[in-house]
Amino acid sequence: MIDILLEIGLLHFLAASGLMFLVGVLGIIISRNLLRIIMSMLLVSMSIVINFAAFGAFCDKSFLNANLICFFFILISAVQIAVALAIFFRIYQSNEYLDIEKIKEN
């Protein structure tokens, strides 16, 4: 049992990224502020990046495939967040709040 804990392998990184993924999903569900939902989405994206990096380190000897996928994934996430921020800014300008419950009511 102690050997499993002390010999750090793929499973440990997957467990860490899985927990991060679950906390991010929980944040998306329970948050009421749009910006915090965006931050939770970023956390989910980062957990996926860790997942890819772990698989790249343990399964792909050249590191190239995993790094390329990570690179494109991070870029796409950044663009996605930028577009979401612009939309939220517009929502704020028209509504004066970022609470999803209030936005749903209107």
Binding site: F13, V49, I50, A53, G56, A57, A66, N67, C70, F71
Partner: peptide, 11 residues
């Protein structure tokens, strides 16, 4: 830091 530990320095 975790990515760095995994050897993916550029990432």
């Amino acid at each position: 830091i975790l990515c760095f530990m995994l050897g993916a320095k550029f990432i």
